[in-house]
Each structure stands twice: as structure tokens, then as C-alpha cells.
């Protein structure tokens, strides 16, 4: 079993908290993992990514080769497209639909949509609205993770346990919010999966 994930977003959006939950779930199942992060200058509003590799065999490279990712998971649509060349033919793209506009020449919606048109295996959702519905926009990350959960090859209960552990020190209400966000994201992905 192996799963290679590229997490993408804009510095400050919080892709690393998604990586932390997946990483903990993987480790508790006794799997190997490597997860590279971007620290430093790019974190100031630039494009950031994290390569997350999980396997039942020892992993060599910290970086995923071109065309080998099983999943691109993005908190921002243009950032999702940035890593398309890493996605394998059978890979899935799961992305937030709402642009984060912090550059003057950000592409318009039509051109952005065209970028996704070739992709068949994709789940595009407005994670912020769903998070708001779950209780707070701060849980947007967990909505995205929930939407990716059917493709992760990890037990959903392990993801839940990781959320409980990681958010535990912030109190039960924060845990419940994030678990709710996680399950709402999962429900949407399952609908896409069925159709």
C-alpha cells in the first residue's frame, strides 16, 4: 500500500494542519511516512506545498516524482492546478473552489474553470461555506480533509482519532466542530464518487 499526496495552498492558509492529521492517522496504523514542508519566505502569502508520502514499505525520496501523486489536495483552486503535472492518471484532485486573490493579475473564473475541465477525477467544493455551516470557517481545513478521506486508504476512524488528539487541548467544542466539518466534507465526496 502506498499513497502520495500533494497538499497545496497559499502561505498562512494552514495546509500543515491537514498534513498533521493524516500523518498521525498513518503513523497510528504503523505505516511509514515522509512529509516535506515549506518554511521560510514563501510562508508570507506565497504558494506553498507539502509532499506527504505514506507506505507500508520504507520510503526513499521526501519529494514525489512527476506523475506519481495519488491525490492533490488544495485549499485554493489555482494552487490545485499548479501541481496537476504531479498527478497520476488514476489520481484524484480535491480542491476548495474559492480563490485566494492576493496577486493583481489573478485569472478570472472562466479561465480557472477551463483549467479543471480536463480533469475527470475531481471533487471541487466551497470548503469555507460548508465549514461555516458546521459552525466556524476555521474548520475549512477539516472539510477539505473530509472530502479527501474516501481516497486516502486510511481508516476513517483513525482520522477521527487523530482530529480528537490534535485538537484535544483546545477543548471538546473545538474537537466536535472539526469532526463535524470532517464528516460534512466526506459526505460531499461520497456523493461525487457515486455519481
Amino acid at each position: 500500500m502506498k499513497i502520495d499526496i500533494i497538499l497545496a495552498g497559499v502561505g498562512g492558509q494552514g495546509i500543515l494542519s491537514i498534513a498533521a492529521v493524516i500523518g498521525e492517522a498513518a503513523l497510528s496504523q504503523g505505516l511509514y511516512m515522509k512529509q516535506s514542508e515549506v518554511h521560510g519566505m514563501s510562508q508570507r502569502g506565497g504558494d506553498v506545498q507539502s509532499n506527504l508520502r505514506i507506505s507500508d514499505q520504507a520510503i526513499h525520496s521526501d519529494l514525489i516524482p512527476t506523475g506519481k501523486a495519488d491525490l492533490v489536495l488544495a485549499l485554493e483552486p489555482m494552487e490545485a492546478l499548479r501541481y496537476l503535472s504531479y498527478l497520476s492518471a488514476e489520481g484524484w484532485l480535491v480542491s476548495n473552489s474559492v480563490p485566494y486573490v492576493n496577486i493583481p493579475n489573478y485569472p478570472d473564473q472562466e479561465r480557472l474553470d477551463a483549467g479543471f475541465s480536463e480533469m475527470k477525477r475531481k471533487v471541487i467544493l466551497d470548503v469555507e461555506s460548508i465549514a461555516r455551516e458546521a459552525g466556524s470557517v476555521r474548520a475549512a481545513n477539516m472539510v477539505l480533509l473530509g472530502a479527501a478521506s474516501p481516497f486516502l486508504k486510511l481508516d476513517y476512524s483513525e482520522l477521527e482519532a487523530a482530529v480528537r488528539h490534535i485538537f484535544g487541548r483546545k477543548g471538546e467544542s473545538v474537537v466536535e466542530l472539526n469532526l463535524k466539518a470532517l464528516s460534512m466534507g466526506k459526505a460531499i465526496a461520497e456523493q461525487v464518487f457515486k455519481s
Binding site: G67, K68, L84, S88, A89, L112
Partner: peptide
């Protein structure tokens, strides 16, 4: 390397 998709030009 096997590329299934190209990075679209719209990415800045």
C-alpha cells in the same frame, strides 16, 4: 517521467 496532465497556462 510519466506525465498525465500538464500544468495549465492559467497558473501564475
Amino acid at each position: 517521467t510519466n506525465k498525465s496532465y500538464e500544468k495549465p497556462e492559467v497558473v501564475l
